[in-house]
Design a binder for these strands. Structure first.
Lengths: 324, 324
DNA sequence: TTGAAAGCGCTAACAG
DNA sequence: CTGTTAGCGCTTTCAA
């Protein structure tokens, strides 16, 4: 910077002003500086800038990362992270990706944020009981959660209750009368909401719930399905709380010799890529992750400008394919 | 830090030494400082540290991001990014994710690295013609490319040539005699290599190549397959350069009334999750992305310690399922 | 072994 | 509108 100042024959302050787009600079000086910057290939030092301004343009994207490497949201990871990065980068933010799984990584995240390294935080698919949102919220850093969280953090989510309701209503409208469900892990709010949607809708139709517990993995979908078949051999439909489990259910049904959708109809949730390739292709509730990620990014960016940060809930859409 | 020093009754220098694990500190002082740090919840300021040391513990993970949002490597994104992050974080590095697609983002990346914000760079799935690896290499920052790159950057890759060869040999061993291929985008080295493996192996068996150009998308796989069927209705096998295209080919074959594998055998490449759910499940070449990502992370970490940075090539494995 | 002091590169009052 | 100056919080010689 000193070199630039010297070359342009001005002071460091002027260089700083030009570089930071300060309006109060004589065009002549501005041009001189710009020329010098270009000639010297000058790039400002962010560390020094952060130190001087006590600000940063980094944003942490914190992804919950279960120790076992559960897949719950994996098919979405690319969409979510790419979409957010694109928007955040376009807004001049620098994306710092952090995995929050083990207690150590939790600590690392907290320290990192506490150290003031980031201007804001995006929480991605936190579990309901996760202590991180709470402790970060206490630090007062602008924060948005993708997927409903606890502790009053602004969030973006899809309409889990409504989506499940649509699935069940559709099944009912097709003449299905014994509609079961396979749930996600109940420590996740999304799972709870989908179960609620299923329960309430079923109750409205005067039918009883038939529930198996799953954990959003394919395996658990297959197991849940087998158990459901055991419990109630007469069931004619199943709503799986995500597509991965629906795919597992499809396999279990085939094993059991039931035809889909003739004997048993299957509806999933999420509309992941793989839902297109199953046999038969999966009827599912599309929850638009790209849109949600974008909304979350915009919400955080808005927070920086002092916007209120009201929750955003995106509607879901029933995608009818051949499994129901 | 001053507060810590005051509370411990020592100088800032001592605090700094303790915090940075300097050996030359009296245990008594060390304990005092540690206590004060804990009591005050002190977290060192990274910006100041970077400024003073002229070093940083941030690493950029640069993911090529085609404007249109091509899926070429999408199913792998989660595996790759998570694996790398985990290892990098475990080594105390901070991961900065950057998308390199548009010219502006290229520039942003270059400037960012030029500004010395990162200690090293991980390049993920760059295209062969991408100018970024070259320009970054010129800046002399430690760098590793996941997927072969140009310009002498240390890289980790799977054995694309060998994998394709295994696929073709297997097909041949099953009695297939007219083996076609659908290629990836030929501006990617991986595509070129897979094509080379196909060509050379076929030549060894004295057969001629039957080639359709694809771009790693499902659609292009279906189109390629249709074209292949047009060109050579008698073909009895196809090697798709990735699973997505193999899935597209499966659909096109069904449309055309060919049975798989009875009439036409299909082999893919990658072993993505979805390959399990197709009908019939896809025989494919497993290229272990998690292992590759881990190797890449370790390679970069090694570079920091002055290790040589020799290329790593991971072997592939034929996964036989029902499509061939 | 410890402390004092001099920066790291930049921004932001402030005076001119 | 421009230049001077005093830090931002930390590391790191250099003496003591």
């Amino acid at each position: 910077m000193e070199a630039v100042a010297a070359r342009a024959g001005v002071s460091k302050s002027s260089v700083s002003r030009v570089v930071n787009g300060d309006a109060t600079v004589t065009p002549a000086i501005r041009d001189l500086v710009i020329k010098a910057v270009r000639e010297l290939g000058y790039v400002p030092n962010g560390a020094a800038r952060s130190l001087a301004t006590q600000r940063t343009n980094a944003v942490a994207v914190i992804v919950s990362d279960p120790p076992k490497g559960l897949v719950c949201d994996d098919p979405m990871f690319s969409t979510v992270v790419r979409t957010m990065s694109r928007l955040l980068e376009a807004a001049g933010k620098q994306v710092t990706l952090m995995l929050a799984g083990s207690p150590e990584s939790q600590l690392r995240v907290e320290q990192f944020v506490a150290a003031g390294h980031v201007a804001g935080v995006m929480l991605v698919s936190m579990h309901g009981a996760d202590p991180l949102p709470g402790s970060l919220a206490r630090m007062g850093v602008p924060m948005v959660s993708l997927g409903r969280s606890v502790s009053g953090v602004p969030y973006v989510d899809n309409d889990n209750v409504g989506g499940a309701a649509v699935a069940v209503r559709y099944l009912h409208s097709q003449g299905r009368r014994r509609i079961a469900t396979i749930t996600g892990p109940l420590d996740m709010l999304a799972s709870q909401d989908r179960l609620t949607g299923y329960r309430e809708t079923l109750r409205d139709t005067g039918r009883r719930s038939i529930v198996a517990l799953g954990d959003f993995t394919r395996i658990s979908g297959a197991e849940g399905m087998r158990q459901l078949l055991d419990d109630d051999p007469g069931l004619d439909a199943v709503f799986a709380a995500n597509d991965l489990m629906a795919i597992g259910a499809l396999h279990a049904l085939r094993e059991a010799g039931r035809r889909v959708p003739d004997d048993v109809a299957v509806v999933g949730f999420d509309d992941i890529e793989a839902a297109l390739y199953t046999a038969p292709p999966l009827t599912t509730i599309r929850s638009p992750m790209g849109d949600q990620a974008a909304a979350a990014a915009r919400l955080l960016l808005g927070l920086f400008e002092g916007a209120p940060g009201d929750p955003v809930i995106m509607p879901n859409e029933l995608v009818i394919r051949e499994s129901a």
